[in-house]
Structure formats: C-alpha cells, structure tokens
Write a protein that binds this DNA or RNA. Structure first.
Length: 155
DNA sequence: GCCAACGTTGGC
DNA sequence: GCCAACGTTGGC
C-alpha cells in the first residue's frame, strides 16, 4: 500500500467537490506530464491512500484523504477536441496521459498547511517541499505518510 | 500580480 | 541532440 499526494486548485476542484460527486469518485484528468503519466500508469494501485492537497489558494495544504479505486487508464479527456485538457499529441492507440479514479474518504479535522509541513524536519525531503516542484501527483514515502496522518491530531 | 523554477518545444 | 525561448505552476 502506497501513499500519494495530488494537488488540486480548490477554485477548480476542491475536496468538497470530490465529496459531492456520485459515489464520491472522480477521475484525475488533465495531468500532462511524463513523470506523472508513468506514475499513474504503472505505480498507483487500487486502495493506495491519497493525500488531497489544495494549491494556489490562501492556505495551501493537505485537507483530506482519498483512495485510489482504479488502476491507471488512458485520460480520455485528451482525445476530446473541445475539452480544456485536449491534447492533440495523444490518441487512443498511444495515450500520452493516464489517470486514475479516486474516491473521497474524509476531510481532515483541520487543514495541515504547507507552512506547517515545512516546520517539520522529518518531512524536509518529501517531494512536495522540494523547491520548484511542479508535479501534480507525487509519491509519499510510508514514513512521511504515517507522520502526516499523526499530525492531524496534534497542535 | 510577480517571479523563480522547470518542463516542453522547436530551430538548427 | 543541443539549448534558447516559451509557457505553466504555484507560493508569496
């Protein structure tokens, strides 16, 4: 069982939006990056835990938990010319981007902010905190994931 | 809205 | 296959 973190702009798609979906499930479309593609296609497995991170907002931080409910499959939004994630370089025979479906589990009792994450030495080398990290999906080690889960109930 | 960082593109 | 230009991300 692996931990992951996915970023989402709450103005576009927040954890509340996820919770409101039918079956509380949504596909994480629109990730157009080779590293993300490879992780989505090959490494994310059913039942993996996903930290849901709000970015580009007043208080960026981890706001809740979701779980992976499908293996990676081609991001069909890339084939739809009118879709905002349309990608002319992708096609069904050779998809350039994959996605997985994630299901809402719960909101944290509080926002574990980016600011707070940075204060913990033991999290210093997690990918989220590396300078210039722009991946919208990234792996979280078991050590870091366990630590973050404990953080929810402290402070 | 600024700007640093970095992935991607495209000319050569 | 190099690398400059460009576009995007995302914290501040």
């Amino acid at each position: 069982m692996n931990y992951w973190l996915i970023k989402s702009e709450p103005d576009v798609f927040s954890i509340e939006d996820l919770a409101r979906k039918p079956k509380k499930t949504e596909h994480g479309d629109g990730m157009r990056n080779y590293q993300a593609h490879n992780m989505l296609r090959d490494q994310m497995k059913k039942a993996d835990l996903v930290f849901f991170y709000h970015s580009s907002c007043a208080q960026p931080g981890i706001v809740g938990l979701a779980r992976v409910v499908t293996e990676g499959y081609p991001d069909f939004t890339a084939f739809e010319t009118k879709n905002r994630h349309y990608d002319p370089k992708s096609n069904p025979e050779n998809p350039r981007c994959d996605m997985v479906d994630v299901q809402f589990m719960r909101k944290f009792t509080r926002n574990i902010t980016l600011h707070e994450l940075k204060e913990h030495k033991s999290l210093a080398n997690m990918p989220l905190l590396q300078r210039g990290n722009r991946l919208s999906v990234m792996p979280i080690s078991k050590k870091h994931g366990d630590f973050i889960l404990k953080l929810e109930n402290t402070s």
